[in-house]
Design a protein around this nucleic acid. Structure first.
Length: 191
DNA sequence: AGCACGATGCTCT
DNA sequence: GAGCATCGTGCTT
């Protein structure tokens, strides 16, 4: 067990997002351990970023992003989906990395059953697969007692990282809409 | 394989 | 009241 520390998250958000590719997202409930390798992530950074939930300042919903790095920002959207972010950068500055896809590893059969055989390549798909919801908002990702953390995983060659615009920001103005702040591993062809 | 659409409820205007 | 960092189904190529 090699949990990524506070200092890992207290860095520029783009750097953290790239470094999270290949890392292992771990979820422990009822002493059952599930995990998956992170394949895709997106950056949301600051109140200037009009694609970021912090664009209108601090609110009850987005307050986790203003908290210390290395914590979870979990929010509810579209009336039915939970999204998992890892908070980055210094406390007081709102920034986070959205985890968008994992490759199931430990407990893959349980994950598959929970997903009814469907894939885990989407931000709301992986939260349902790992039983992550609003109860984990603000959870400490650097403390295993939270039941949610990220460990060192597999090495990823920087040349194998592809960037593209973030997904789903249909009404966000430029230049934010087209910032190449979505990252995924080249060999993750499935999507 | 790709696209359109409805579900569904919380948040902020 | 509109919009949403989405998903799964069902219908079209």
């Amino acid at each position: 067990m090699n949990i990524l520390p506070y200092e890992f998250y207290n860095r520029p958000t783009v750097t953290v997002a790239k470094d999270l590719l290949g890392a292992r997202l771990v979820r422990v409930t009822d002493s059952m351990r599930l995990s998956g390798i992170i394949l895709e992530a997106e950056v949301y950074v600051g109140e200037e970023d009009l694609g970021c939930h912090a664009k209108s300042g601090k609110t009850a919903r987005n307050s986790a992003m203003y908290g210390p790095p290395g914590h979870a920002y979990v929010y509810f959207t579209y009336g039915q989906h939970w999204m998992l972010n890892a908070v980055t950068e210094r406390e007081g500055f709102p920034a986070a990395v959205l985890i968008r896809a994992i490759e199931p590893d430990e407990g893959a059969s349980i994950i598959s059953a929970r997903r009814q055989g469907r894939d885990t390549n989407g931000p709301a798909k992986l939260t349902s697969a790992l039983d992550i919801d609003g109860g984990l908002n603000n959870a400490d990702l650097c403390d295993p007692r939270s039941g949610l953390w990220i460990e060192n995983g597999i090495p990823v060659d920087p040349d194998d990282i592809i960037s593209r615009p973030r997904v789903g920001l249909n009404t966000v103005p430029e230049p934010w809409k087209s910032k190449p702040w979505g990252f995924h591993i080249k060999w993750n062809i499935k999507k």
